[in-house]
Design a protein around this nucleic acid. Structure first.
Length: 326
DNA sequence: TAGGCCATCTGGTCCT
DNA sequence: AGGACCAGATGGCCTA
């Protein structure tokens, strides 16, 4: 079995009209839709009719809700208290697989990557020789797909990480077998967190209860009879909000998984969702080029792969700089 | 303090 | 009919 036999064409390269985001380019929503293949909706919401937010939001009634605050008084005390207790990014996948603790290291790693000193290396990550800059890291490659000449990134068991030298694999390893793969057990920073979907559910139930209580209390203030849900009861609106939160959390968890699957300067480097998409696209292109190589003696293909790696490297560098600017 | 990023709420639209 | 999906609005947090 060869790469050509795979149902997915790993050898596919961008079509002439298709372009990957420039490392320095500005990605518009249109471009993002292109990247994510968002289907074009037939009926878009009218943009000329800005709507006023409802006064019945959970934020208004439930200060415990993540990110919520008393709208009249700005940040609430509860919000301040909860900042250090709950991570901003969900630390669990939608399938309830616990992830290593995600620490928001905004600024720390960026300053590392900004300087010439090497960033702290994750034990499961290795640096690329040759094309990649110092401190450049690739995600963990776990399994070698049967019949594939190169490894497919797979979710790792908790605490287990692996190393692979992609460049060496490209030149001598995975086509004939013999790529350098070593296993590293990582017990550090693999911490179980309580951030999961159940917590969201809890938030929902608490929100409902609190809103109900606050609503009853607010009824004294005259908000009792206010209706703003079109064709929806308040309970259904709250349920829909909870579903929407869960859906967005799932998307965020997927982004977090993708972040861990793409190269970065450090394991805990904070990347925006846009940066994750940019890096992932260039990384996929590099992998596609790698899969495309049949004869590494061909200098053209070798240089094509090198160009893709270089693009991936530049994207990471650019995104790192862009993030630091914020 | 401005701007970027993100979570949340909300309502419109699509899909099952 | 109800849930999923989407995008606008809003506010909080963080960084330069």
């Amino acid at each position: 079995m060869s790469v050509k036999d795979l149902p997915v064409d790993y050898r596919r390269s961008p079509s002439p009209g298709q372009s990957f985001p420039s490392p320095t380019g500005i990605v518009s929503k249109k471009h993002l839709c292109h990247l994510t293949e968002t289907p074009i909706r037939k009926n878009k919401r009218k943009r000329s009719e800005p709507k006023k937010r409802s006064d019945f939001s959970i934020k208004r009634f439930c200060p415990e809700s993540p990110g919520s605050a008393c709208s009249e008084s700005g940040r609430s005390e509860d919000t301040d208290i909860n900042v250090d207790e709950s991570p901003r990014v969900p630390s669990v996948c939608s399938n309830n697989v616990l992830l290593p603790e995600h620490t928001d290291t905004r600024g720390d790693n960026h300053s590392d990557s900004n300087s010439n000193s090497s960033p702290p290396a994750h034990p499961g990550l290795v640096m690329f020789p040759g094309h990649f800059p110092p401190g450049f890291m690739i995600p963990n490659f776990h399994y070698k797909h049967p019949g594939l000449p190169f490894p497919i990134p797979q979710p790792l068991p908790p605490g287990q990480l692996q190393r692979v030298d992609l460049l060496q694999s490209a030149t001598s390893g995975y086509r004939g077998g013999g790529g350098t793969i070593s296993t590293t057990n990582s017990n550090n920073n693999v911490k179980q967190t309580s951030m999961n979907n159940s917590s969201n559910k809890d938030t929902k139930s608490v929100s409902v209860e609190n809103e109900s209580d606050d609503f009853n209390e607010s009824s004294r203030g005259g908000r009792k009879n206010r209706k703003n849900y079109k064709n929806m009861t308040r309970e259904r609106r709250i349920e829909a909000n909870a579903r929407e939160r869960t859906r967005v959390h799932t998307i965020s968890a997927a982004f977090e998984s993708l972040r861990r699957a793409v190269p970065s300067y450090s394991y805990n480097q904070k990347l925006s969702k846009l940066a994750i998409l940019r890096i992932a696209s260039s990384y996929i292109m590099a992998l596609g080029r790698l899969a495309e190589i049949d004869n590494l003696d061909n200098s053209d293909e070798r240089s094509s792969f090198a160009n893709c790696v270089d693009l991936c490297t530049r994207t990471i560098q650019t995104e790192g700089r862009a993030r630091r600017r914020h």
